[in-house]
């Protein structure tokens, strides 16, 4: 089979107040996008414990998307800014350990009115993960 058969599995942690609504709106508007994102609705991007991201990767995700409100628009004031720090930390850990996961983790700001932006982000991230191929830890037995 050809390489193009690879269909990435992306776990998307979407904020209830913005990106989740944008994703819903994108669906209602029948925008076309790759079916690779498995959505986990969270009440805030700040709810995403770094462990959630690790768990997703260890259970076979090829990519993880965390998406929340633009800075200044967080429903809980600052949850998204905390999510940004955690993402920076995770990327640093992945980089130091040479896990090659830093490019498989993406944090994006998408407001509830930005359904087209949601589609663009999903398309771009899907493309990026497809180019990277399956996650190195996806099928690793000895973890």
């Amino acid at each position: 089979m050809e390489e193009q058969e690879f269909q990435p599995a992306i776990v998307g942690f979407l904020c209830n107040w913005c990106t989740y609504a944008a994703a819903d709106s994108a669906g209602v508007s029948r925008f076309k996008m790759p079916p690779s994102v498995m959505v986990v609705r969270v009440m805030c991007s700040g709810r995403v414990d770094p462990l959630f991201v690790l768990t997703a990767f260890f259970l076979g995700a090829d990519g993880v998307l965390i998406s929340g409100c633009w800075p200044g628009q967080c429903h809980y004031q600052v949850g998204n800014l905390q999510a940004r720090r955690r993402t920076a930390l995770l990327k640093s850990i992945f980089d130091t350990l040479g896990l090659e996961l830093e490019d498989r983790l993406r944090l994006s700001w998408i407001s509830s009115s930005e359904a087209p932006r949601f589609v663009r982000v999903v398309k771009a991230f899907d493309r990026q993960i497809t180019d990277l191929g399956p996650s190195p830890i996806r099928d690793e037995l000895f973890l």
Binding site: L81, R85, R86
Partner: peptide
């Protein structure tokens, strides 16, 4: 992880 700056890590998001 208990604090943050308004403007930082622009390249992360």
């Amino acid at each position: 992880l208990r604090t943050f700056e308004e403007e930082e890590f622009a390249q992360v998001a």
